[in-house]
Design a protein around this nucleic acid. Sequence first.
DNA 1: CAACAACTATTCCACGTGGAGTAATCAGGT
DNA 2: ACCTGATTACTCCACGTGGAATAGTTGTTG
Lengths: 209, 209
Amino acid sequence: MAKSAELTPLGVASLALLAEQPMHPYEMYQLLMARHEDRLVKVRPGTLYHAVGRLEEHGLVEATGTEREGNRPERTTYRITEAGHAALDARLQAMLAAPVNEYPVFPHAIAEAHHLPAKVVTGLLEDRVVALNADLDFLIHAQEAVTAKGLDRKYWIDITYQQAMLRTEIAWIRGLLEELGTGQLPWDEPRPALTGLSNKPKESLGKHS
Amino acid sequence: MAKSAELTPLGVASLALLAEQPMHPYEMYQLLMARHEDRLVKVRPGTLYHAVGRLEEHGLVEATGTEREGNRPERTTYRITEAGHAALDARLQAMLAAPVNEYPVFPHAIAEAHHLPAKVVTGLLEDRVVALNADLDFLIHAQEAVTAKGLDRKYWIDITYQQAMLRTEIAWIRGLLEELGTGQLPWDEPRPALTGLSNKPKESLGKHS
DNA sequence: CAACAACTATTCCACGTGGAGTAATCAGGT
DNA sequence: ACCTGATTACTCCACGTGGAATAGTTGTTG
């Protein structure tokens, strides 16, 4: 059972699959792809085998046997254990309840954007808006497809979440572009020296993880 | 110069600092902390030294010398090179223009939330809303502090971005809670068999990275 | 003025990830 | 009947990260 070490995203996805049915790793891979879950979790064949191996080491899943078909490499089938069910539930609850800073790159990029001239920044942001709109269109089509199939809504609420977030990002960037265009947000002054240490200590408060 | 390998976030942050002034790694660490940049980039002392070492290997920075004070361990000061300036600009442009899927855990969590009973989910989401509101308050205070100091706005646009995203997430969760509360979004039916492979091939379109 | 905590400044190791590599088998065309 | 390319099913290695460990030095409190 080792010294814990938190369930990785792919670990959660694997456990969730095995909670439905026993499987061998490659079948998990196929299912994840067929369900387009690779839009939510990073799935790489190599990583998947490692992930399942780790689950086994921690006693969250166990091998039920290894059969082989023809001369193919043998496939090991796994099933979830009681401890596995418990770990999955616990991890899901934590993921839902506690927001964690995952350090997305875009905020960092705009925070450092002042290193570049305004003209360049506006061009790049226009490109981004185009790409984001394409993503949004894709999600809208996905929603149409899934409603058309009559699939129960609780299985795709994540699509509506991602749409909402995307729309907000697009709107925010459009606002910024507007302000840059009208010169309302000045850009071209040089950096004021080096906003250094030693001035304001300030409260070091609230940041999770 | 090696086989490229993309500039990591901490690499970007380090380069950006050295673009202002030559420094030794620990000074970078202090500056990043003093400016609260650890809210945008993951900063860990150990990782920072590795990051700077890699920058040096790639010729993006170079050591200007190693002085020591008293009996302290000696400090190596670095400065950015021409190649470093170029790499920084290129990376910043890519980060601004191209959205990439970074697989945040919350969408994954809500996509798997149907493994848990509705009662539990609502409780957890209420907790999350509380935490998100605390984060939002923090950002609002940060904005007040920084406007009060008269710091030029282009240095803190990321704060307004993060506020917008946070507000959207909170609003979306509140909407979901509403629907769960009124029973408008049904939850307690069992999973329909196993939405398996073999049905719809469908276009495998648009997903970046 | 002694003890102890916090800071300064860095090194080291274990772990997870991603990408490439391997090797067989099956499907489809010519 | 043969070649090509996709699919099945995994293994392996290099890299980046996080956390702990180290060790001297300055500041604080009783």
